[in-house]
């Protein structure tokens, strides 16, 4: 189960453990359940306790990004490690997904 909290139209989800191919399907299912509420306009992924991510994570995050974009919403990330930031950069995700600092995420 992913920890999450709602603040108006924002949903902050804390990803935990390791986001690889093995875990991707359950994370995808859980995120889809959490964002099924159409009033959510911002999905904010908190990476502070995520221990590992590979390209399977790119697929999961881009898939959720497309869903949010299609409803006029946005996706942001907070607490990204330098390693995950490199994966974001090389895949081009940093061009469509907003890197927020903690204050922006709380606004």
């Amino acid at each position: 189960m992913l920890q999450s909290y709602r603040d108006g139209s924002r949903l902050v989800v804390r990803l935990a453990g390791e986001l690889d191919h093995y875990c991707a399907q359950s994370v995808r299912r859980e995120l889809d359940r959490l964002i099924s509420d159409q009033s959510i306009r911002w999905l904010i992924l908190d990476f502070s306790v995520l221990q590992f991510m590979d390209s399977s994570g790119i697929g999961v995050i881009l898939g959720r990004y497309r869903q949010m974009r299609d409803r006029g919403g946005q996706v942001g990330v907070i607490h990204m490690s330098p390693h995950i930031a490199r994966i974001f950069h090389m895949s081009g995700m940093d061009r469509v997904i907003h890197q927020l600092d903690h204050q922006e995420a709380a606004q």
Partner: peptide
């Protein structure tokens, strides 16, 4: 359809 990103080899080459 499985949301595979197609970035596996690119990640290997980057790292």
């Amino acid at each position: 359809e499985q949301e595979r990103s197609g970035m596996g080899f690119a990640v290997m080459q980057t790292f």
